[in-house]
Design a protein around this nucleic acid. Sequence first.
DNA 1: ACAAAAGTGTTATCCTTACACCCATGT
DNA 2: ACATGGGTGTAAGGATAACACTTTTGT
Lengths: 256, 256
Amino acid sequence: MDLTMSSIEDHIQNWQPGLSIDCVIMGYANHELHVLLLKWKNSDRWSLPGGFIEKEEDLDDAALRILSERTGVTLPTLHQFHTFGGRQRRDPDDVLEVLSSLELKNPVVENWLMQRFVSVGYLSLINMNTSHPKADFLSDRCEWILLRDVPELIFDHNEMIEKALEFLRIRLRYLPVGRSLLPQKFTMKDLQRLYETILNKSLDRANFQKSFLKLNVLVRHEKQMLGGAHKAPFLYSFDKVRYDEYMKRGLGFTLS
Amino acid sequence: MDLTMSSIEDHIQNWQPGLSIDCVIMGYANHELHVLLLKWKNSDRWSLPGGFIEKEEDLDDAALRILSERTGVTLPTLHQFHTFGGRQRRDPDDVLEVLSSLELKNPVVENWLMQRFVSVGYLSLINMNTSHPKADFLSDRCEWILLRDVPELIFDHNEMIEKALEFLRIRLRYLPVGRSLLPQKFTMKDLQRLYETILNKSLDRANFQKSFLKLNVLVRHEKQMLGGAHKAPFLYSFDKVRYDEYMKRGLGFTLS
DNA sequence: ACAAAAGTGTTATCCTTACACCCATGT
DNA sequence: ACATGGGTGTAAGGATAACACTTTTGT
């Protein structure tokens, strides 16, 4: 990452005009979904991590680079989920807000940011405990925010999160959310709560367990011994190969 | 449509640079899927109907306008299915081919077309018999081409059609393909063959019929009397309201 | 009457759903 | 011992898949 405040102007000429990328990165902890947000320096406004595309760069590569540059989070892939092209999707006041947060009076940068942008949305799910987001030079905070506590974001970023969630729910049975969001070892209840959280509905404990066990994608380990006035549950991990295979054809059962 | 060869240069300054739209329009006839293609004037190269976005125009609106301008086909909506952003997606030789087909030596137009473009793909299904495609001033033909006879197209347009088909198959149970692609009245076999064609697999006649009838979305009419040494089938049409409702939650049965 | 294709019925099998039951654990 | 939650069993109902049977038509 060699981008700094003073080098923005130099980069502008190497960027595709009018096109941006925004990343919806979902994390999971305490049975709640979180989303990775940046707070602009010298401003109280939050946004999704986003950025611009080099003139000689694949769109998918740009998404990974942008995420890494702006949050320090590196991933193998991101899922493109929608392109946002509303004529008025960026509120002019929000643009001014961002500009003033940059604290640099530079007509080249101003012109760049004031153009109309169409933005491509990318989605990923990651384990919050094994990734360590860091704010970049444009932001003073980079944090996991509870999905239900997400504040009003700049531009149409709230709408982007909505769309990403919709995409996530429709694709759920084809996405390895377990491996992406849970620690390496987890209980059946953990797995169930993850699906319940994403789908926002409760599932039958017995049936969920039987359905998942039948897939043969789980490896059963020793019981965990956490205190609690109850039977200690088994710990599981995923058989990576079998799990990935299953994700290609999708979970064969209904999550009810 | 007021765009003409001589006015292209005037339009360029009103277009979003680096961004284009391409439309995959599927039609159905004789139990085969077709796709709407344009042949460039003074060239033997074919392409999807595509175009550029006005600076003050919603992306979705632009897609409808472009389709209408380039083919005469008007539709209420198109489905955005993917954004194509590969760095090398437009073969430079193809760009030259298009340029020479325009037969106008104009550096403004040349510069415009030689930039890198990211293209947003839109999909729709329409009834081939009630729409009448017309070539625009850039094309000398605008035709329905059998999906399995689609020639090598310019740029990455063949790949776009592949992606659109994949999207179509995954979304099949949420898309009103029957109403979009069949005549107003049709037989059960027509409907079955449509689904068989799209899914590229054969379905059980008896089960298909029972599944669809159970939905209560079909209105049964008189029998048709076409010659043929066999029992005359019923004709059906859709109960529009119930059908649209069903498409929101998706077909409840498996197509087997 | 027969062939061909349409319409309907039957059945075994599987999946879903909603519980019930027993088991292990810490207090 | 008992409350709590984990693991497994079961049975009714529904959906699926494969196929058989009946009906209608033109020749």
